[in-house]
Simulated scan of single mutants.
Amino acid sequence: MTVPAPRVRRRTRRPGRLLPLLLATALLLPVAFLVVQAHQLVDADRDIVARERLGVEYLRALGPVTDALVDAQSAAVTGRSLRRDTLDQAVERAAAVDARIGGELSTSERWAGLRAKLEALPERPLTDPEAAFTVYGEVTDLLLALHGKVRETSGLVRDPGADAYFLQDGVGEEMPEAVVAAGRLTDLAVLMNRRPAAERLQSLVQLATLRGAALQPANDLANNLRSVVENTESADLGANVLNPFDAYQRAVETMALHSQPTNRAGTIDTTRLLAARNEAQQAAKQLQPVLLDEIDRLLVERLDELDRDRLLIFGAGGLAVLLLIGLAVNGWMSAPRDASAATADGVTPGPPTDGRWDPAGTRPVEQSPTLQPVGQVHEPDRWRPFDAAR
Rank of each mutant, 00 (worst) to 15 (best):
A72R: 15
L287S: 05
V31E: 01
M192K: 12
E379Y: 04
T362M: 04
L41Q: 15
R356M: 09
L287A: 08
A182G: 15
S368W: 00
L215E: 10
G137F: 01
I313H: 07
L322H: 09
R53H: 05
R384T: 06
R310Q: 12
G16H: 09
T107N: 06
A218K: 09
G63F: 09
G113L: 10
V179S: 13
G317P: 02
N224V: 00
I48N: 12
N193C: 02
V135H: 12
T127C: 03
Q281D: 12
I313S: 07
A251Q: 07
A26F: 07
S106P: 04
F386G: 03
A335S: 14
R13Y: 05
R310C: 01
V347A: 10
Y136N: 01
A76G: 08
D85A: 11
F166M: 10
G170C: 03
T12Y: 13
T254W: 14
E138H: 14
A162V: 12
L87F: 07
P196Y: 05
E366F: 04
L167C: 08
L114K: 07
V190D: 12
A95L: 01
T232F: 09
G170K: 02
A44K: 14
D354I: 02
R184E: 06
L114N: 07
A120I: 00
L221W: 05
A72H: 13
R14D: 02
R264C: 02
L298E: 03
P373L: 09
G238S: 14
R115P: 01
E294Q: 14
R308Q: 11
R302P: 01
R14V: 13
A94H: 05
E379R: 09
H378I: 00
T134A: 14
A5M: 01
E279L: 06
L143R: 04
K285M: 12
Y136G: 00
M192C: 14
P125M: 00
S259I: 01
Q40M: 08
V229E: 11
Q286F: 03
L23G: 08
T270W: 02
G346Y: 09
G155Y: 01
L237D: 07
R14H: 12
I101N: 05
A265T: 08
P364R: 08
L118G: 10
P160E: 00
T86R: 15
A222L: 11
I325P: 04
A181G: 13
D67E: 13
A275P: 11
V228N: 06
V35W: 04
R390G: 12
P122H: 03
A222Y: 10
L204P: 03
M192S: 15
L319N: 04
A132V: 02
Q73C: 05
M333V: 14
T78P: 01
R11L: 09
R250A: 15
G79S: 06
R84Q: 05
P385W: 00
P6S: 12
A235K: 13
L22R: 11
A218S: 15
R124H: 07
G266S: 03
L23F: 08
D187T: 06
D45L: 04
L156M: 00
D381R: 07
E152W: 05
R7E: 05
F166T: 04
Q260W: 11
A342D: 10
L82A: 14
D307M: 06
E379P: 11
